[in-house]
Design a protein around this nucleic acid. Structure first.
Length: 823
DNA sequence: GCCAACGTTGGC
DNA sequence: GCCAACGTTGGC
């Protein structure tokens, strides 16, 4: 711990508090109240008395201290907002707590930031609103008047403890990265600006960022490893008190990674903690494996690992420097083999017994809230293993050396409270040394493993929860290319979107596990209704969050099916209920075709060669209703996807009468984005046409340009040689026998200059069907005698004439009075 | 109940 | 560092 004090004083690692201190008094206050400034990983805070403050005080104390500053407690390892409720809960057991989710939260960190941005965003017309908009934001005049900055510490996941820095522009732009900042501050030289610290280093080199480098090195291995590495041996660094990343996913370590891993280990392991700050950044000290360190190694001055030894790995035979032993603590085991075996034989290290501290808010709460996911689980599945009410969980459990005595097993998914008891006088000496790293390590392994025990603790399923929307096997999951057409793609910045939806391409949404509303429309909760048997994907979750106080359950769900907290996913990994195998196969094939079609469609953007759209026989719908283009409206998302994915159902659903289509196209305001948008919109029009009823044997194809072409495929039609060409921007032209219809043709007079909707196109095609191709001048006999048929036309031939005319007026005029007479 | 919006986290 | 996209929330 002591060694951290120095690095923490480095300007770079002095994030928030220092910065705030440099600012106004108001900032100081904000700092104290900011939940986002947990500081754990920031280092700076940890260094001094603040560290003691954080670790040494009970949560209640900490909270009180914070409250004394005039704001709700927001320390990141604090119980969070719920805990306020918890406090109340002690006194008011009967009270309901609308938002019971996550004691160790999934979204708590949102609170401050979102609140802050919300108020600003409201002025911009954003919908999302939350309480306390200013929470956590600190004025940041170095970027200019009105700028704000905040740090958000990740509270969960494998990157727990990682600090994200956000800036808020005076206009309310929330900046998440240097790139975005550059965009927002276009014209401002940010060369000497260090994003993380928010400082300009004019003419000077930014202070060394040892922690940052270490972190980066870590992430090169895996994000989950980083925390470990970052924390050095996990026992003495400031991060060990605050950055408690749980995950150490050995199975993700590649051979190369292992090499680095080992090198790091051998290079740094002999370093004493006190010299850590002097180490090159590349030298990283690894923690001991929890299962081997405490028991197999002698302790020197109470510090494991300070003794260097060269051992021969009993498994692979390599020699290594360090003191790693296998899980039986009998044979030397190099870090690589240890990691491997750990990932395979997890049971030995997976289970930990924890006992409640008896002091914290959770421990004092003796009444189940009845609202949290765990309570609901018990209510809905009385026979299921009881989960402890989230409100009653100890927020700072103590590891139990002798398992099983308390009857309560705590498997801490995250380490955010470890430091609390780490420095607690209540913790026994035997618990103290090994907790810092080994426990973090252990629950990290828990997080990554999968068994029944784990499934009983939803907190530990965090990783799975985050990933369960992708099976990784279906075509959609394997598809790596965005269609560029769906609403989610269009929303992406790379497609010129505003990044509001932030969803994966619809065609890449897992067919098995994606939320239904994210699927291509007809495969989701489309016209067949949310409960239709056809639907791939998973049932829509029935959230029971803050706005829903009572139990919510889908009527057709089994009683023991907990829809809160996405529990609906648990049993539907591969197929939704009631799915026939044959049907799922058909859907699968349909989507496969869909993906192929879209990829083909995408390729049309670059490799143009005319694609024969005729071969693609898409079902036509009989009911279509289009709206006019609207500059100010966005493409209607899911409705538009009806058109996108109508072809999925093909023949088997051709008889289905599909609902109205509302297609609203918009033109990009930004010229730079305009090209992309126009192109995308042209594709949308294509999809719309392919899902619409066109006049008989008219087909839409894509040609180089890109360009939409509508072709009459029947040679029997009078329009057999007529093509409608629609360019991006929807300006169109009609050609007859490859000759352009003159702009003066009356056909153009009766139609808009831009065919922006399928309705416009259909209308034009219907008009065309009322025309015939001008026959031009009758061939001269001299030519006929030579066996040639050469049509002559007037230079101003109309090409298309009404069916009762046969020859346009221009050709008639050229033909002369006699011919006209005979005609 | 739906879904736009967006905070947040994972991973390259 | 940055971006993709997951999961949640609140307006409608």
């Amino acid at each position: 711990m002591s060694e951290e004090a120095v690095p923490s004083r480095l300007p770079v690692s002095e994030p928030v508090e220092r910065d705030q201190g440099e600012n106004t008094e108001e900032n100081l206050k904000t700092d104290n109240t900011s939940e986002e400034l947990p500081a754990p990983s920031d280092g700076p805070k940890d260094a001094t008395g603040e560290c003691l403050d954080a670790a040494g005080s009970t949560p209640a104390e900490t909270k009180d201290e914070v409250k004394a500053a005039g704001e709700p407690p927001m320390d990141w390892f604090e119980p969070l907002e719920d805990d306020d409720d918890d406090d109340d809960n002690v006194n008011s057991p009967g009270r309901n707590y609308p938002d019971e989710e996550s004691l160790i939260g999934e979204t708590e960190s949102v609170a401050g930031s979102e609140r802050t941005s919300r108020r600003v965003n409201v002025t911009q017309g954003y919908r999302r609103k939350r309480a306390h908009p200013d929470e956590g934001w600190i004025d940041w005049p170095s970027l200019g008047q009105g700028w704000k900055r905040k740090e958000v510490v990740r509270r969960s996941g494998s990157s727990i403890g990682q600090v994200d820095v956000y800036y808020l522009s005076p206009r309310g732009d929330r900046v998440r990265s240097r790139v975005e900042l550059t965009t927002v501050l276009h014209g401002t030289d940010l060369t000497n600006f260090e994003y993380k610290t928010g400082k300009f280093y004019d003419g000077e080199v930014p202070p060394p960022r040892s922690r940052g480098r270490i972190k980066k090195k870590f992430r090169e291995r895996s994000s989950s490893e980083s925390s470990w590495m970052e924390r050095g041996d996990g026992a003495e660094t400031p991060d060990s008190h605050h950055r408690l990343t749980p995950s150490f996913i050995h199975k993700n370590i590649t051979s190369n990674q292992k090499s680095v891993y080992l090198n790091s280990f051998t290079a740094d392991f002999k370093q004493s903690p006190s010299s850590e700050e002097k180490l090159p950044e590349e030298k990283i000290r690894l923690p001991f494996p929890s299962s081997s360190r405490p028991l197999s190694l002698p302790s020197i001055k109470g510090e494991f690992g300070s003794e260097e030894s060269t051992l021969l790995c009993a498994k692979c035979g390599i020699s290594f420097t360090g003191t790693w032993y296998d899980k039986q603590r009998k044979r030397p085991c190099c870090p690589t083999c240890w990691a491997t075996s750990k990932s395979i034989q997890h049971p030995l290290i997976r289970f930990r017994k924890w006992i409640p501290c008896g002091q914290c808010v959770g421990c004092h709460n003796s009444i189940d809230c009845g609202q949290c996911a765990n309570c609901k689980h018990g209510l809905q599945s009385p026979d299921a293993r009881k989960r402890l009410c989230r409100k009653r969980r100890c927020i700072c459990p103590i590891r139990k050396n002798v398992p099983g005595s308390t009857g309560v097993t705590y498997k801490r998914p995250f380490g955010d409270t470890v430091d609390t008891y780490e420095d607690s006088n209540d913790v026994t000496e035997s618990q103290h040394p090994s907790l810092k790293s080994s426990d973090t390590e252990n629950f990290s392994v828990n997080v990554d493993l999968d068994d029944d025990d784990m499934s009983t603790d939803d907190d530990e399923d965090w990783h799975k929860k985050r990933k369960r929307r992708s099976c990784g096997e279906c075509k959609a999951c394997l598809c790596r290319k965005d269609c560029g057409v769906c609403d989610f793609c269009i929303d992406k910045p790379k497609f010129g979107g505003s990044n509001k939806k932030r969803q994966k391409c619809r065609l890449r949404q897992c067919q098995r596990q994606a939320m239904r509303h994210l699927l291509p429309f007809q495969m989701g909760a489309g016209e067949y209704g949310p409960d239709g048997p056809w639907m791939p994907g998973r049932p829509r979750p029935h959230y029971t969050y803050s706005r829903k106080t009572g139990l919510k359950r889908n009527s057709d769900q089994p009683a023991d099916m907990d829809f809160t907290d996405y529990d609906d996913d648990d049993d539907s990994n591969s197929q939704p209920p009631n799915w026939g195998l044959e049907h799922s196969r058909q859907i699968q094939q349909s989507l496969d075709a869909d993906v192929r079609n879209y990829q083909s469609m995408q390729s049309n953007h670059s490799d143009f060669g005319v694609k024969n759209g005729v071969a693609d026989r898409f079902p036509h719908i009989s009911n279509h209703n289009y709206s006019q283009p609207d500059h100010h409206s966005q493409w209607d998302t899911e409705k538009s996807l009806r058109g996108v994915s109508n072809h999925l159902e093909e023949e088997e659903e051709e008889e289905e009468e599909l609902p109205m289509i509302t297609q609203i196209y918009s033109l990009a305001e930004n010229p730079a984005e305009k090209g992309i948008d126009l192109e995308n919109q042209l594709m949308k029009l294509l999809h719309s046409l392919r899902s619409s009823v066109l006049p008989i044997l008219w087909y839409a194809i894509v040609a180089e340009g890109p360009q939409l072409q509508l072709i009459q495929c029947s040679k029997q039609s009078t329009m057999a040689d007529t093509i409608v060409l629609i360019n991006p921007g929807f300006y169109y032209q009609v050609t007859v026998q490859k000759q352009p219809l003159l702009p003066t043709h009356p056909l153009y007079d009766t139609h808009p200059s831009r065919l922006s909707t399928a309705t416009d196109v259909v209308s034009l095609l219907l008009s065309l069907e009322r025309y015939v191709v001008c026959q031009g001048l009758p061939p001269k006999e001299s030519v006929l005698n030579k066996g040639l048929i050469i049509l002559e036309r007037a230079a101003t031939c109309d090409f298309l004439v009404k069916k009762n005319e046969r020859i346009c007026s221009s050709c008639k005029a050229l033909q002369g009075p006699q011919t006209q007479h005979t005609d």
